[in-house]
Nucleic acid binder design. Structure first.
Lengths: 331, 331
DNA sequence: TTGAAAGCGCTAACAT
DNA sequence: ATGTTAGCGCTTTCAA
């Protein structure tokens, strides 16, 4: 059996509360006593039990990190950064995959609520109302969704898709499609709106979707694109864009010769695809880090350490990277 | 404040121990009482505290899942499957990223030990001796490493790389290189050995490396490949293979015209790369699932519920998928 | 079938 | 600066 605080106390000839202090408020115990305790702890291989600690303090030092789909290459860099940041703050990360399902998402929050100090919801598919309700149980931070009263970090896709559309316009495209993502995605609605308003009367915009944000869905939408006279498309993400390119390729439609394609996210795939994909760089690692910090700050406030502020919002800049999938439209 | 077992007890007019039973051993409480309790619990929105439960039972219902690099596309599908499997067994997953660093790996196990029932080490970089020692603290299961006395699941890369080399041999290659992965990787040594013994005296084999298993390292090794008369290479993983292809491309070396390249893992990238990458399919999701089940089984035994068996080992089959990066050598 | 009581490992007043 | 004590929310003997 592993050593407990009691064992250390006996070994160091002090009371257990002194051992406790030595670990949690070191400066409140005499240096010599402290070293004696630390020595004893080391000899016994003692590590404080975070579980027991959580029970008394009410803080678990754990964070829930819920994503729509771990296998979507958009998320891993974000998870990685979040995990590193959390660890640097002495927090551990529960990672859970909601399979793009709002119900699972909510259930996951409930299931984790009792053993985390907060949860970050990445690209949540669940409704605002539900998030509101969940946030009453447990502090929540959002990534890729903005809600008043809840800390959140988003990527500036409004600006980004505007830049993307301008790029297409400059190339001379006048029939543009937006290959939409999931209906429940906040980002998706932001992009759609931005695309429409940017094109305004300078180009005709068709919205294709909603779609599950994966390659297969992109593949499936190729036919519509090919048969509609569209010369350029912006897709909700790289996965859809790449699927679309494959679909167009097998339909004998040349990219970018006949149709230009732009993705969003700049996942590893974008650079590797042929033609390489023009896409929007979104700073996913920064988002992961920012979300953790925001949550921790918010959760601390929630514990009464300071006034809750709630509504902090961080918007991260995006950047268009032009590669080989965009060109002027055919004559 | 969230409802506790006490609140439910009061609401249902029973003693808290009865509530406890209603949740953990339902059949040991009278049906009517049970429904009354469940009703009360529902009304109060009660969820048992896993933290408190862990303190008494000694089982946290959490699992640690430590990978070398979350951002390496090899891992996400495995993490996803593991998380789903764990959840189906009522377990939550701590995911941690060891950054390919043995020291961090060990530290992570120690840090998590107190709040998990076991940890699965994926592609561990840490030494056997250290794993042995860690396993005394907390049940461990291994992925991509075989050790007597510790449950593990590996991919059959010995067979796989044999098949890969035979493929190259059949195409007529006689000067082959193995672009090695990290020195501490068990899989790496397995492959290296298998490559050498398969080629035997039928081809000359050069080992290039060790290398960090990423694109940059692959890129860096291109020059050596180009200048050595090698006509085919098997790489430790897809990342290295793809980096190598890029490197060769920028050196003006044609793949597969002048040099054939084979990867391992069949990550999403392999199909997308140009030329598309011939590679070994390894069943990462199955590995994730198997690891969780093995660990849980082992951990249960460890708690005295049955005789510990320890050494279970599962080997998952691999399969060569031939794409466009392999061809006969130049005349 | 249910209740009473002890205790899991730790922290946090409070007392000394 | 350190010891005492109560208690976090739950499970688990032991009694009734």
């Amino acid at each position: 059996m592993a050593a407990t605080i009691k064992d250390v106390a006996r070994e160091a000839q002090v009371h257990m509360s002194t051992v406790s202090r030595a670990f949690s408020v070191p400066h409140r115990v005499r240096p010599e006593t402290r070293t004696r305790i630390m020595e004893a702890a080391r000899r016994l291989g003692y590590r404080p039990s975070r579980v027991a600690r959580a029970l008394t303090t009410g803080r678990t030092h754990n964070i829930g990190f819920i994503v729509a789909d771990i296998a979507n290459p958009f998320f891993p860099p974000m998870i990685k950064a979040a995990e590193h940041t959390a660890r640097a703050r002495d927090y551990h990360l529960f990672v859970a995959d909601a399979s793009e399902d709002p119900a699972i998402e909510a259930e996951l929050v409930d299931a984790l609520a009792k053993q985390v100090d907060g949860v970050v919801l990445c690209a949540p598919r669940v409704s605002n109302a539900k998030i509101e309700r969940l946030n009453e149980t447990i502090p929540i931070a959002l990534v890729n969704r903005k809600m008043t009263g809840i800390p959140s970090v988003t990527m500036d896709v409004v600006d980004g898709s505007q830049v993307a559309i301008e790029h297409l316009l400059e190339l001379g495209h006048r029939k543009i499609a937006y290959v939409s993502g999931p209906r429940q995605s906040w980002t998706n609605s932001q992009i759609r709106r931005s695309v429409t308003s940017t094109a305004d009367d300078r180009a005709e915009v068709t919205v294709l979707g909603p779609n599950t944000p994966n390659e297969d869905a992109g593949l499936a939408v190729a036919e519509q694109v090919a048969s509609s006279g569209i010369t350029a498309v912006l897709a909700y993400n790289d996965l859809l864009a790449i699927g679309l390119m494959e679909g167009l390729h097998s339909l004998g439609v040349d990219v970018p010769g006949q149709v230009s394609v732009i993705g969003i996210d700049d996942t590893v795939l974008a650079r590797l695809a042929r033609p390489s994909l023009t896409t929007l760089i979104v700073p996913t690692p920064d988002a992961g880090t920012a979300a953790i910090d925001l949550l921790l700050q918010y959760a601390a406030a929630d514990m009464g350490e300071e006034e809750p502020r709630g509504g902090a919002h961080i918007s991260l800049p995006t950047k268009l990277v032009v590669r080989d999938s965009t060109a002027p439209p055919p004559d």
